[in-house]
Amino acid sequence: MVTSRFSSVLTLALLVILISQLGCRAISRIGESRQSIAARRMSRQGLQAMHNGDWTNAENLFSDALELSSSDDRAHRGLAESFWQREQPEPAIKHMENAVRLSGNDPKLVQRLGRMYFDVGRVEEANQQSLVALEADRYSAEVWALRGDCLRSQSNNVQALAAYHRALALQPDFPDVQMQAAEIYRVQGRYDRLLATLDRLQEGLGGIEIPPRVDMLRGIAMRQLGQHDEARRCFASAATRDPSNAEAHLQIAALCLDAGDIQSARESVDVAMKIDPIAVRDGRWIEQLENQPQHVAGHIQPASSITEIQRR
């Protein structure tokens, strides 16, 4: 009888302890759940502030969210973008790595991490992320653009161009991709395709200011197609819009040499020398000018006597 009563008391005590532990765990889970919900709410507010351009408020909200829940992938993503916007790539990448891990390799975050890697020169890691992103989402123009950039960095222009075409099929107006495709057409000497790509780019930009590089590429194509007057106009526009770039002046010098106008070529090279002496020396422009006979302006020099600086 005593043994039975002792067993009942012991069982009751164990049940009390078990219920107490379960209750504590349940309360803990409720607390964690409330913190997680609050963190998510702050992250949503932070993302809205970020989209509105209020970066200071956004960063504060993301930081507060992570204090409540360190496993909030959206808060990590938001802080990554905040640090990136402040030109602090190392903490930006660290937070984006956490966002990718916590999100279960969300393809959009994988692509963004790959783009960050690429922009800081970590090309191999960017390449790996581009492949992971493609396995999850083959219908993202941004992922194909990243893939194309990685391939181009490996000098694989053929496959890079194919990747850019896939991106443009999904998003026809994609200026960064259109510019990269145009650069490949330049290297390949496919100047008609280059001009068609630039035309499409300009149409898509509408009233937005066109990058000076567009004028440069158009001028290169026009020169190769024998449209020297139009080429000169394009180079002059590029030089005006980007005074820190010597290439436009060197291209004008090349046009002057095409026409046998040595004096004008010298003047353009002199301007380029003040902007970028290294580019002038690398192109051996001084030697070229010294070796030019004094022809009358308008006499056409053989094309083989001119350095093809657009292929550099």
Rank of each mutant, 00 (worst) to 15 (best):
Q21P: 00
Q21V: 14
L22P: 00
G23Q: 15
C24F: 09
C24P: 00
R25S: 08
A26H: 14
A26F: 13
I27Q: 07
S28Y: 14
S28F: 11
S28H: 12
S28N: 12
R29N: 13
R29C: 07
R29F: 14
I30H: 11
I30L: 09
I30C: 03
I30N: 06
G31E: 14
G31H: 13
G31C: 07
G31N: 14
S33I: 03
S33R: 11
S33V: 05
R34N: 12
Q35D: 14
S36C: 06
S36Q: 14
I37V: 15
I37Y: 11
I37M: 13
I37T: 15
I37D: 13
I37S: 14
I37C: 05
A38P: 00
A38C: 03
A38T: 06
A39T: 09
A39E: 06
A39G: 06
R40H: 12
R40V: 10
R41T: 15
R41M: 12
R41W: 09
R41Y: 11
M42G: 01
M42H: 06
M42D: 06
S43W: 02
S43C: 06
S43R: 02
S43M: 07
R44F: 09
R44T: 10
Q45R: 13
Q45C: 04
Q45P: 00
Q45M: 13
G46T: 08
G46K: 01
Q48R: 10
Q48H: 08
A49K: 02
A49S: 08
M50F: 12
M50V: 05
H51K: 15
H51Q: 15
G53L: 09
D54M: 03
D54N: 13
W55D: 08
W55M: 15
W55V: 15
T56H: 08
T56A: 13
N57I: 10
N57G: 11
A58Q: 08
A58R: 05
E59M: 14
E59T: 10
N60V: 10
N60T: 12
L61N: 03
F62V: 06
F62Q: 02
S63I: 04
D64F: 01
D64L: 04
D64W: 01
A65Y: 02
A65D: 03
L66P: 00
E67K: 14
E67Q: 11
E67A: 07
E67H: 09
E67L: 07
L68W: 05
S69I: 01
S71F: 05
D72E: 14
D73Q: 13
D73I: 01
R74W: 07
R74L: 10
R74S: 04
A75T: 07
A75W: 02
H76C: 00
H76K: 04
R77G: 03
R77H: 15
R77T: 12
G78Q: 05
G78A: 07
L79E: 02
A80L: 01
E81S: 04
E81R: 11
S82H: 01
S82T: 09
S82L: 02
W84S: 04
W84K: 03
W84R: 06
